[in-house]
C-alpha cells in the first residue's frame, strides 16, 4: 500500500546543525557526567571532568547561537504552547496509533510542532536546559561563590544537576522512540537530516 505524500521543508540548515550538535554534546555530557557521578569508569575521573567542562562550554556557545537564531527568525513562536488538538494528539499516541489511524496533526512550515511536542520542547528549553546550565556553571565556579556573593549549597546544586541529567535520559529515550512514529520509521530522522518532511497527502 502506498500513500501519496507531499514534501514540506520543515527544518532549516541552522536548525538541523543546532539539533545534531546539541544531541551529540548532550549525549557526551551524559556519558562523561555519569562517570563523574561514579556510575561507571570509562575515561577516568580527571579526563571525564575535563571533557565534561569543555563540552559544557561548547553547548553553552551553541545555546547562545540557538537563542539568537530563534529570536531573529521568529522561530520561537513554534514553541508557544497550545491546547488546540492536544487531547487529539495524546489520544492518537495512546490509542489511535495502534489502529493505524491518521495523525490528527499536520506539520507545516508555519507550525511544525504538534501540541505535545510544543509542551515537551518548551519544557526542555525553559526548564531542563536552564537548570542544567545554571547548576552546571554554579558547580564549575564553586570556588568563586564567596567572592561573587553567591549563597548556595554544593550538595543541592549537585543533586539538581543530577536530577536534570536523569530527566534528560528519560527525554532521550522517549524522544528517540518518537522519531519512529512517522509514516515510515525513519521518516522523522530523515527530515531532521535533510530538512524535508514527507507528509501524507489528504
Amino acid at each position: 500500500m502506498t500513500t501519496a505524500t507531499i514534501r514540506v521543508y520543515l527544518f532549516k540548515g541552522f536548525e538541523r546543525l543546532w539539533h545534531w550538535t546539541q544531541a551529540l554534546l548532550i549525549i557526551l555530557l551524559g556519558i562523561t557526567g555519569f562517570e563523574i557521578h561514579n556510575s561507571y569508569h570509562l575515561f577516568g575521573y580527571q579526563k571525564a571532568v575535563m571533557l565534561h567542562n569543555t563540552l559544557a562550554w561548547a553547548l553553552i556557545a551553541l545555546i547562545v547561537f540557538a537563542i539568537f537564531w530563534h529570536l531573529t527568525t521568529g522561530e520561537w513562536r513554534q514553541y508557544v504552547p497550545t491546547t488546540e488538538r492536544l487531547s487529539a494528539v495524546a489520544h492518537y499516541y495512546a490509542v489511535g496509533i495502534f489502529k493505524n489511524e491518521k495523525h490528527p496533526f499536520k506539520e507545516s512550515e508555519a507550525s511544525k510542532l504538534n501540541p505535545l511536542q510544543r509542551f515537551t520542547y518548551l519544557g526542555f528549553k525553559i526548564l531542563i536546559i536552564p537548570v542544567q546550565v545554571t547548576t552546571g556553571l554554579l558547580y564549575m565556579y564553586y570556588n568563586h561563590w564567596h567572592e561573587w556573593g553567591i549563597f548556595a549549597r554544593l550538595d543541592l546544586t549537585a543533586l539538581l544537576h543530577t536530577a536534570g541529567a536523569f530527566a534528560l535520559i528519560s527525554f532521550f529515550i522517549v524522544h528517540v522512540y518518537m522519531t519512529t512514529t512517522g509514516h515510515t520509521p525513519l521518516a522523522h530522522i530523515k527530515a531532521m537530516i535533510t530538512g524535508w518532511e514527507e507528509i501524507e497527502a489528504d
Binding site: I36, H37, N38, Y45, V49, R153, L154, D155, A158, L159, T162, A163, F166
Partner: peptide, 13 residues
C-alpha cells in the same frame, strides 16, 4: 560536605 563521585543521594539515583 558534598564531593563529586564520592557522594550521591540514593533516593534520587
Amino acid at each position: 560536605f558534598y564531593m563529586p563521585a564520592r557522594d550521591h543521594n540514593n533516593i534520587l539515583d
